[in-house]
Amino acid sequence: MGQLELYQLKNGYRYNSDTLFLYDFISANKLRGDILDVGCGCGILGLLVARDNEIKLTGIDIDPLNVQISQHNASVNGIAGEFIAEDFSKFKSDIKFDFIISNPPFCHFGVTKSQNKHIANSRYNDSLSLEQFLAGANRNLKPKGVLYFCYDAKQIGWILALLVKFKLNLTKLRFVHSKRGQNAKLALFEAKKSSKSLCEILPPLIVFDGDNFSLEASEIFKKANTISKVYEC
């Protein structure tokens, strides 16, 4: 895969390995059709998926600056995409999407909140609650459309209840653990709208082997092949 250049704010929210693990989870399937990247940030997830698949990419973010950065990153990498500045909790597209992909904000009210507005919008779920996110996914997916997202593993009970509420059937689930023997911190989800398929529980992803990245994590980073650069406003 060609290297993806990603410009980001020096002092704002910057993508992390969660998005790369989600990209790898999505990559198990060949995607085709209309895709919406929710909370697109610098555009990383949607641009990675668009680089590897024949899709029509749309990105949405509540922050107009993120939309500006995503447009810049799409142009720099020669990837076609439309990026819009809207609140996904109120968004209703004229077209329905085959796929929705997202690393949504999932830090909750119980944590100490950053005073940096750009970081806060991207990290904390008061900018887009889980219920708002899944309601919006149901509203904007085609019948049998597929949702891919990652979320805090500790909130799995609440996630499963809301998936059922919004008629999104969980079809694949994978947990991410920092090290063997440690609790999962992240969960990766595939859910299909109005599906009756059974759920496949995938083997866990272990990030570290001792003090080094595991072989699988290293291969994911290699496949993503991203390089970060500073975006000057």
Rank of each mutant, 00 (worst) to 15 (best):
M1F: 09
M1C: 08
M1Q: 07
Q3E: 14
Q3I: 12
E5S: 14
L6T: 05
Q8R: 04
L9Q: 12
G12S: 01
Y13N: 01
S17T: 12
D18I: 03
D18K: 02
T19P: 05
T19N: 06
L22V: 01
A28R: 15
G33Y: 03
D34K: 15
D34L: 10
I35D: 07
D37S: 02
G39M: 04
G39P: 03
C40E: 02
G41P: 12
G41K: 11
G43Q: 02
G43M: 03
G46P: 11
L47K: 06
L47R: 04
V49H: 00
D52P: 08
K56C: 10
L57F: 02
T58R: 11
G59W: 00
L65M: 10
N66S: 14
I69P: 00
S70N: 08
Q71N: 15
Q71W: 00
H72D: 03
A74E: 04
V76E: 14
V76C: 06
N77V: 00
G78D: 07
I79Q: 11
G81H: 05
I84F: 08
E86C: 02
D87T: 03
D87K: 08
F88P: 00
K90Y: 01
F97V: 00
I101T: 08
I101Y: 03
N103C: 03
F106M: 08
C107V: 14
H108Q: 10
H108R: 12
F109N: 12
G110D: 13
G110F: 06
V111S: 13
T112G: 10
K113G: 04
S114F: 00
S114G: 11
N116K: 04
K117Y: 10
N121K: 14
S122N: 12
D126R: 04
S127L: 05
S127K: 05
S127R: 04
L128E: 11
L128T: 01
S129N: 09
E131V: 01
E131P: 01
E131A: 04
Q132M: 08
F133A: 06
F133H: 04
L134T: 10
L134I: 11
L134N: 12
G136D: 04
A137G: 11
N138E: 14
K142T: 13
P143C: 11
V146W: 02
Y148H: 05
F149I: 13
F149C: 12
Y151P: 09
D152R: 14
A153P: 12
A153C: 07
A153L: 13
I156M: 12
W158R: 15
A161P: 03
L163V: 11
L170E: 05
F175L: 09
K179H: 14
Q182P: 03
A187L: 14
L188A: 01
A191W: 02
S195V: 02
S197Y: 06
L198I: 07
C199G: 09
P203S: 03
P203W: 07
P203I: 07
L205H: 05
L205C: 03
I206Q: 00
D209C: 10
D209T: 13
S218G: 09
I220R: 06
F221L: 09
K223W: 06
N225W: 09
I227M: 11
S228E: 13
K229D: 06
E232N: 15
C233T: 10
